[in-house]
Simulated assay, not measured.
Amino acid sequence: MTSVLLMRLASPLQSWGALARFDRRDTQPRPTKSAVVGLIAAALGHDRTDDLGPLTSLRFATRADRPGTALRDFHIVGGGNYPLRPRDLITDHRRAAKAAAALDQATGPAFGHLPAQSVTHWYGAPKEIAPDPDLGTLVAGNTTRDAMMTTRWYLADAAFVAAVQHPDQALLNRISHALEHPARLLWLGRKSCPPTGTISGGVHTGTLETVLNTTALLPNATTTRPWAWFEATNGTHGAIQTRDQPVTFHPEHRTHAPRWETRTRLTPEPTIEWDIIP
C-alpha cells in the first residue's frame, strides 16, 4: 500500500528554472521535481553534499490549480567589482584573500588593515565609484567591470498542489512535519520566493492519481479542470521525457537524470479538504 503527501506551493512569486544561466533565468510553468525534492531536503536539514537516500525514490506529481502569470524581471547589475557580498567572503576563502588585496589597493589605508585570519569578516566598498564617460562602466580605483544585463522569469500569483508518493508512510509523515517545522529556510525555486501559509496537506493513503483526483481545489483556484503532471514509467502511452530527476545536489558535481511524465486534465471530486493557514 502506498501513501501520498500533499504540498501546497503558493507565493506571490515562484520560479522553477530548468535551463537557467546567470544572465537569463527561465521558469517552467509548474514546479520541477528537482526543486520540490530540494525543498524537502532543506526542510529535513540535509546539506547539499548529503546523499539524498530515499528522496530519490519519491514518485512526483503536480496540479496547477492557479497557473499564475509569467512575469519578466529585467536587471542591470554589476559595474566595478563592488560591493562584495559578505556571503562570498565567508564561504570562499580563496575569493576572500583576493578580495582583501583588491580592497586594500582600491580603498587605501582608510579602511584599515586586518590580519589574514580575520579577512573573512572584513567587508567594505571603495570610495568615489563613478561612471567613466568613455568606457560606460563604473570605475573603482584601477578596477572596472562592465554592467551585466540579466532577464529573470517568474510565475506571479500562482498556486500548485505538489504530491509525492512512497510506500514508507513514516518517511512521508516525517517530511510533512518538517515542512511545517523546517530545519532550513524554504523557497519556491529561488531565495527571493518564500512560500506563504501552510505547505503540508497531510499524508493520505492511495496513489498520486487517486489522491489528486479527490483533493479539493485550492482557495482562489482559477480553473475547475486543472492540468496535472504525473511521473510515469518509460513506455507509458503519451509520456514525455524531462530531465529533472535529482541524483545529487553537491555543488561541485550536481547531477540530474531523465524521467518520464504524462499530462492530463483533472476534475477533482473532493473528499480531502484543505486546512490552510494563509
Score class of each variant (00 low, 15 high):
K98W: 14
Q169E: 12
R152C: 06
A64H: 00
W122L: 09
A178W: 01
G141A: 05
R152Y: 09
H75N: 12
C193T: 03
A178P: 02
D104Q: 11
S192T: 06
T137K: 06
I90M: 12
P109N: 07
A170D: 13
T143F: 14
P67K: 02
R72H: 15
A110H: 12
F74A: 14
L84T: 06
D132Q: 07
A156S: 15
D65P: 01
T56N: 06
L155I: 05
E128G: 09
V164R: 00
R87L: 13
Y154C: 01
T62W: 03
P182W: 03
G136I: 00
W122S: 06
M148T: 11
Q169N: 09
P182D: 08
A159V: 03
A100R: 04
S118H: 13
D51Q: 09
T49D: 12
Y82C: 08
P182H: 07
G53Q: 05
L179G: 00
P67L: 02
F111Y: 07
G141D: 04
R48D: 10
A102I: 10
Y123N: 15
A183I: 05
G112S: 04
H75S: 08
F74C: 08
T91Y: 13
N81I: 10
D73G: 04
A116L: 11
W187E: 03
I90R: 13
R85W: 10
A159C: 10
P109Y: 08
M149K: 06
D51E: 14
D88E: 13
R72D: 15
H75W: 09
D104V: 02
H46F: 13
P109H: 07
P131N: 10
